[in-house]
């Protein structure tokens, strides 16, 4: 006698619950993710880390003063208007200063001395000008007088 083959039962996995879960997770992460603006670095170093056993080149140092109104002075000369964020005159002078220091084989160093009420934006404008002039040794005068820390 010829037996009739039974139809093979298809082994199917029901994907619906998994897809439901994945959609829920997706919606959760989409809602909870907040996109922040990309932040960038503008760095400086405080003095006082040199090892005393090593010989240290005495840097060619210039002090930039920033007044409460945003006026910027280098060697008692005022550079750029307080509203000028790009500070082209200061950048030009700082590039010359760096080139002179390099010619003398000494590191160029800038100390920024802002007054107490100067806004952070103006301080960052000056740091930005130092970066534009490719001066890496930048520090701050933050003592009670004008002494550096």
């Amino acid at each position: 006698m010829k037996l009739k083959h039974k139809d093979n039962v298809k082994a199917e996995v029901d994907m619906t619950p998994m897809i439901d879960c994945v959609f829920l997770l997706l919606v959760f992460f989409m809602v909870s993710t907040t996109f922040n603006r990309q932040e960038a670095d503008i760095s400086f170093a405080l003095p006082g880390t040199a090892d005393q056993a090593e010989s240290v080149d005495i840097p060619d140092e210039q002090i930039i003063q920033i007044t409460e109104n945003g006026n910027v002075f280098l060697n008692d000369l005022e550079y750029d208007a307080p509203a000028d964020a790009d500070m082209p005159e200061l950048v030009k002078t700082l590039i010359l200063f760096r080139q002179t220091a390099e010619a003398n084989r000494v590191p160029a160093m800038i100390t920024i001395a802002p007054e107490d009420n100067v806004k952070q934006q103006r301080v960052v404008d000056v740091l930005n000008a130092c970066t534009a002039a490719k001066i890496a040794n930048v520090t701050f005068a933050v003592g009670s007088g004008d002494e550096e820390i």
Partner: peptide
């Protein structure tokens, strides 16, 4: 400086309307 950290970074935006990230 008192705590012994001398390497400091200020955070800044590169432009007024920088987005993404």
């Amino acid at each position: 400086a008192n705590a012994g950290v001398f390497d400091i970074i200020f955070g800044a935006f590169q432009s007024e309307s920088a987005g993404g990230g």
